[in-house]
Design a protein around this nucleic acid. Structure first.
Lengths: 214, 214
DNA sequence: GCCTGTGAAGCTATTCACAGCT
DNA sequence: AGCTGTGAATAGCTTCACAGGC
């Protein structure tokens, strides 16, 4: 029964929800597909397709009810119960993410952090308890954590990923600049900042060249 | 003449280069497409296609010469001269990225940072001079910066993007959780951590459900 | 025999375009 | 008149499969 939804679609739905909440806070009650498309930077047809996927249906006169659609998407993406996330690596980047996420989403919380460094361990950092990395499997299994963020140096990332999978994690957000090798049932989202920056620099240069040609 | 390369391909090439450098440092002299594919987490055919795009050609007996291919990719992605990058927003995330990038790539350097906060301004942070955000256009134009990273709160991101484009930036890496509206000639790479995490949590849950069904 | 380079096929994602509704 | 929901068309990306080389 679980309709398998594409990676891209889920990403956009998450974005739509946030944008709908923004709209709601400006007092907007209804939005047309092209309104949402404009703020999301996609086409109206894309929005309608994506909304179709969550089974929500709008009205042809007023468009989508902003808060209803946000709720539909929320139920669809978040599910009913709260999900717990672990953060592995509490360096600059790990801390930045903890600071940002601290109590932002009601259904998704980073509840445990792990680090090797004795300066972090057993302290509470941005509202999140930091455990020694030795206890990784134990804490993850104990708290029923299914999602993890890897923010450790490249050399350690694969070993951490293996241990996370052992502990029962099924989704990983990887900031380390190496691709992870995990069983196919595990979902990995690579967030490779180096690659992204090189890509942006490449296209910036490309664009520059093109302008010079005319 | 400039063959237009897809976003995806450029990203993978950047990754291949890094992996080739890793291989080189382990002493490997040659690598087959399937070797590179294995570490990159893609298929061998994909690697060959991507390598084709840079115009490099390997040998059918030994595969690709590791350092030659890395160089070819480097020339292709980086171009000949050094590219300068600006960082806008020196909060937790901006600082983390500065710390990470500090002198890592020879042809790509974050040379200027900007912030509103008087605690940052006119200091050198992780090797990067921090200017008051008022001087954004001036410094960017003056230093010929074509690429920028946005790491400011959502509410300020669009205004910063507009100013960057005015100043002559043609590529933006955006960490703010709102899509940017820029002219079509400007390349934007969205790095939306919230969306990515929600996506991972979604598929982790999905997987969980599937396992329960049997 | 096993490799690369590549045309062709296959697949996925996006957009078009229009029926149906209000 | 202008919207949504959606089959059909298109565009873009990846894999197949094999010719040609060592």
């Amino acid at each position: 029964m679980t309709k398998t939804l594409s990676d891209r679609t889920v990403g956009r739905l998450s974005l739509y929800r946030r944008l709908l909440n923004n709209l709601a806070s400006t007092g907007a009650k209804y939005a047309f597909s092209h309104d949402l498309a404009a703020v999301a930077g996609v086409t109206a047809a894309q929005v309608r397709r994506d909304v179709m996927a969550v089974g929500h249906t709008g009205s042809s006169t007023k468009g989508y009810d902003v808060s209803e659609l946000a709720d539909s998407i929320g139920r669809f993406i978040d599910g009913e119960q709260r999900q717990s996330v672990a953060m592995v690596g509490v360096g600059n980047l790990g801390r930045a993410i903890l600071a940002y996420f601290n109590g932002r989403r009601p259904n998704l919380a980073i509840v445990a952090a792990f680090d090797r460094d004795v300066h972090c361990v057993n302290r509470v950092i941005h509202g999140c308890r930091c455990h020694p990395v030795e206890q990784l499997e134990e804490v993850i299994a104990g708290q029923g954590i299914g999602t993890a963020i890897i923010a450790v140096p490249a050399a350690e990332a694969q070993a951490i990923a293996d241990r996370l999978v052992c502990g029962g994690v099924r989704g990983i957000l990887n900031f380390a600049p190496v691709p992870l090798r995990v069983p196919p049932s595990i979902f990995v989202q690579e967030m490779d900042i180096t690659t992204s920056l090189e890509k942006v620099a490449f296209f910036a240069r490309q664009q520059h060249r093109q302008e010079e040609e005319f």
